[in-house]
């Protein structure tokens, strides 16, 4: 019974994901850019993950329960999401030759979890898949003034930080914040408020300086 109320977070996340999908779908229809397609697949992945989480909360499934050997339900969910995230990065970087790598890694890690009760490889893999793309996306997003990439970087970063704290409520809050930050990225908020156009910035600066000069 204790975990049912957490399902509300999942519903909020699903709602934000759907809201995120609308402008992305529109942009994809207009430009046919592969980036939008990748983002859509990732968003669907997050919706799927949230739906599974939602039902685990509703049905009170213990995600810490062992499925087989040392493999927990939570690990399976983590691997699904990590695979989608990793695949997304490879797709963005056009590393076609490495497309099968996330599946191979997940396969061995799942098998390893079945044979050995040890969560270290799982944590290491999730950390790598979470923070490395976050760094690249935030850096590239900031450099190229791309709010969508920046928002996605924030999504991975905040999501990753949340996952590192093993308290359900904290994880849920961080994940919800992460998706809201992603949603803001698709709505052009970062372009508008965080990356002002250089010309505009110079104009503002110029006006400000000229005002000072006139006063003097």
């Amino acid at each position: 019974m204790a975990n049912i109320h957490y399902s509300i977070f999942e519903l909020i996340m699903i709602a934000f994901c759907i809201l995120t999908l609308v402008p992305i779908l529109k942009s994809w229809r207009d430009t046919k850019n592969r980036m939008y397609m990748a983002v859509m697949i990732l968003t669907f992945g997050i919706i799927g993950y949230s739906l599974i989480n939602f039902f685990t909360f509703i049905l009170e499934v213990d995600t810490n329960a062992y499925v087989i050997g040392g493999l927990r339900i939570g690990y399976i969910l983590g691997y699904i999401l990590a695979t989608i995230q990793f695949e997304f990065m490879l797709y963005l970087r056009r590393l076609i030759k490495l497309y099968t790598l996330p599946f191979i890694i997940a396969f061995y890690l799942i098998l390893g979890n079945i044979l050995v009760i040890n969560s270290v490889p799982f944590i290491l893999y999730l950390t790598f898949v979470g923070y490395v793309p976050a760094y690249f996306l935030i850096r590239d997003g900031k450099r190229k003034h791309n709010g969508l990439a920046f928002g996605m970087g924030l999504l991975f970063l905040v999501w990753g930080i949340g996952q590192a704290i093993p308290v359900i409520i904290v994880v849920e809050i961080f994940r919800t914040i992460a998706i809201i930050l992603f949603f803001l990225g698709t709505r052009g908020v970062y372009e508008k408020y965080f990356f002002p156009i250089q010309e505009e910035e110079e104009k503002i600066m110029g006006t400000w300086i000229s005002k000072l000069v006139i006063k003097e």
Partner: peptide, 21 residues
């Protein structure tokens, strides 16, 4: 193209897997 390195990665995984488990 998608499968270029798959076999090598799978085999390397197998070796790493042996050294860990």
């Amino acid at each position: 193209e998608v499968l270029y390195y798959s076999a090598l990665m799978f085999f390397m995984g197998m070796i790493f897997f042996y050294y860990f488990t």
